[in-house]
């Protein structure tokens, strides 16, 4: 059994804090070598068989360095294949664990089926589709692997503000789904979604909080170094109090994250709530971070804006805060 702190140490060694957003392809090779693509793959299927806590610990470290490598959608894609009963399941799992990429899309699909069964429309929120051999997409007939080189499939990069990630649409134009690649039927889609969604929420939440910690550290460091009125600005109580609030928001969101990560009975809505709190904390911290950096925070040269941009994108992944707050409220109302 791999200890959590060993995992964290290894992650920090492989992805040192002073190198933000290291190159994607090199990072991907590193991530595959370290076995992180198969963290949640059971040992009997050739994986590491680690729990949600181990997985969250890795995503936390990936957030800390604003990782460019699409580990979250890769893990979710692998889990979708794992949960399926397709004929080539074992072969697919081996390929995915070995470094081939078939991500789950993280934004909704808008597709229409023609009378002959072919599909047209857009599957949104696919990270790094340029390196994907297939995408795990929710089609009207269920979840399926959609090969990116199949006829009727094209990938379109959508420029995003967040420079640490690359987002694509998968555009289908008369695509005929391959029955051998259907991971679920229409009825099974909801169950697979509900099984994967908590994983997705907890992973994104961990990414948020790793990054929020790093943004706070950068900000504190800057405030200690930057001098005005003959003293470091970190000495002014008005600014210290804002830093303290940033720290408190992170700490509270972290406590909820780890609580839900360790609670196997945590519901989908509870995981969505943990992600919402984490993403809101991350957004708050980065908003404050730019203000506390003053003018330098508005320059592209200084990295702090990159944290803010990742935070804004993370807020919208897996459902917006409005959606999850509403669902949390509805559930608590009983």
């Amino acid at each position: 059994m791999i200890e959590l702190n060993e995992l964290t140490d290894a992650a920090q060694k492989a992805f040192p804090a002073d190198a933000l957003s290291p190159g994607r392809d090199e990072s991907w090779r590193l991530v595959a070598e370290m076995g992180w693509l198969m963290v949640r793959l059971p040992e009997e299927d050739g994986g590491l068989g680690l729990d949600r806590e181990a997985s969250a610990a890795i995503h936390f470290e990936m957030g800390r360095v604003l990782a460019t490598t699409p580990l979250i959608p890769a893990q979710l894609g692998l889990q979708a294949v794992l949960a399926s009963e397709i004929a080539a399941r074992v072969e697919w799992l081996e390929r995915l664990a070995g470094g081939e990429y078939a991500p789950l899309h993280l934004l909704p699909a808008k597709l229409e089926a023609a009378p002959n069964g072919t599909l047209s429309g857009v599957v949104g929120g696919v990270f790094d589709a340029d390196m994907a051999m297939a995408v795990v997409a929710k089609l009207p007939s269920g979840y399926a692997l959609v090969p990116t080189d199949a006829p009727g499939v094209s990938i379109v990069e959508r420029a995003i503000w967040d420079p640490s990630r690359r987002l694509f649409d998968i555009v289908l134009d008369g695509y005929a789904p391959d029955p051998a690649l259907m991971l679920t039927d229409a009825d099974g889609a909801a169950a697979l979604h509900d099984a994967l969604a908590p994983e997705a929420h907890l992973a994104v939440a961990a990414d948020c909080l790793g990054a929020a910690n790093a943004a706070l550290e950068l900000t504190i460091e800057y405030m200690k170094m930057r001098r005005q009125f003959d003293r470091p600005i970190a000495m002014f109580q008005a600014l210290k109090h804002r830093a303290a609030d940033m720290k408190a928001r992170i700490a509270v969101a972290e406590a909820l994250l780890w609580n839900r990560v360790r609670d196997d009975a945590a519901t989908l809505v509870q995981c969505g709530a943990a992600k919402t709190l984490a993403a809101e904390a991350f957004a708050f911290v980065t908003e404050e971070a730019i203000q506390l950096h003053g003018g330098i925070g508005l320059t592209e040269e200084h990295p702090i804006h990159r944290f803010m941009k990742r935070a804004m994108l993370n807020l919208q992944l897996c459902g917006s805060p409005d959606l999850w707050n509403e669902r949390t409220g509805r559930e608590a109302l009983g």
């Binding site: 509270v252 969101a253 406590a255 909820l256 509403e326 409220g329 109302l333």
Partner: peptide, 21 residues
């Protein structure tokens, strides 16, 4: 109203989690 209530529920759950931890 549901959003505001949900936000409060999460805030309270998180305070419980942090006190527990």
């Amino acid at each position: 109203v549901l959003r505001d209530f949900g936000e409060l529920v999460t805030q309270v759950d998180a305070v419980c989690a942090v006190a527990d931890q």
